[in-house]
């Protein structure tokens, strides 16, 4: 196919930017900075070790706190026993269920509330009413409402994740550039196509932020609910360890919660980045 008139001579301004060669100083920093980070974590463990082996008592009391070595030993023992996995799996199942329900409801309602005035008038007021109540405050009522311990804890977990997800979705829809909607209509898009092609992808970065925050909150709610009312789960395990004076188990429980929380957040970020290849890397990492 022939080139259109005048087109052949046109220089392509601003083609996808070439990767600039990093200056020497930055390249050096390339390995120095990770090294510093590892060192920082090492120092934390060293301080923990010193404080607990010397039984430091300086207003904060370390006599009953297990040493890192004791915790490691306990962790090895626990991960060797099937009983420990039952707790972890119970928590993971609750998080997964609660988060999945919250995502479905939160994103679905958020898209409707953000885009349709009727949905905003009918669905949004109850959300505003219940939002200020922390999910943990629902625990007593939840125990009465739901037939099983599992369902009441999933309810709390769902509740915790729901609000940040729905609010961020609404925010994302409301932030959509109206010019893009106009552009779509002038290209022949109907109402449904606008919703699918403009509203959903336009709100997606904000939705992923909501999911990320929601995941953090749902862990918070899960652990609190398990500590208060559970019979299984990693939160229950950690609380019971305190009751039966197994102090090393408390710390193992805490660390497991931390690692699981971190992994689930990383999973959200990974899926988010996969769904939004159009965003520059640093923006995707920030969500």
């Amino acid at each position: 196919m022939a080139t259109a008139p005048n087109v052949g001579m046109v220089p392509f301004v601003g083609a996808p930017a070439a990767q600039a060669e990093a200056p020497a100083l930055l390249r050096l920093a390339g390995w120095r900075r990770p090294a510093l980070r590892v060192l920082s974590i090492g120092l934390f463990f060293a301080a923990w070790h010193v404080a607990t082996t010397w039984d430091v008592d300086f207003y904060v009391r370390f006599q009953n706190i297990p040493t890192p070595a004791e915790v490691l030993e306990e962790a090895v023992a626990l991960f060797g026993s099937a009983a420990f996995y039952v707790h972890i799996l119970a928590s993971l199942e609750r998080i997964w269920l609660g988060f999945a329900i919250a995502t479905t409801l939160g994103v679905g309602m958020g898209l409707l509330i953000g885009w349709f005035r009727f949905a905003e008038d009918t669905l949004f007021p109850p959300i505003e009413l219940f939002r200020p109540i922390p999910a943990v405050a629902w625990v007593p009522l939840s125990i009465m409402l739901w037939p099983t311990e599992r369902s009441s804890i999933v309810f709390i977990t769902t509740l915790g994740a729901f609000f940040p997800i729905v609010l961020n979705t609404i925010h994302g829809v409301e932030g959509i550039d109206r010019q893009l909607v106009r552009a779509a209509t002038s290209l022949g898009a109907g109402r449904l196509a606008i919703f699918r092609e403009v509203v959903i992808p336009g709100a997606l970065p904000s939705i992923v932020t909501g999911l990320s925050v929601g995941m953090g909150v749902s862990w918070l709610c899960l652990i609190s609910a398990e500590m208060i009312s559970g019979q299984f789960g990693i939160g229950y395990f950690t609380w019971v360890a305190y009751g039966i004076v197994k102090y090393s188990q408390i710390v193992v429980g805490m660390l497991v919660i931390g690692v699981l929380g971190m992994l689930s957040s990383a999973l959200i970020r990974l899926v988010g980045a996969r769904c939004m290849p159009w965003l520059p890397r640093r923006v995707r990492d920030a969500t």
Partner: peptide, 30 residues
């Protein structure tokens, strides 16, 4: 609005989540 009247805006009117091809194909897809 309708596809029989094509509009070119001043700026920032491409769908950021679509590639160049995806943007140009949009009307045909509709």
């Amino acid at each position: 609005p309708g596809a029989d009247r094509g509009m070119v805006f001043q700026q920032h009117s491409l769908f950021p989540w679509k590639t160049v091809l995806g943007n140009v194909e949009f009307g045909l897809k509709m």
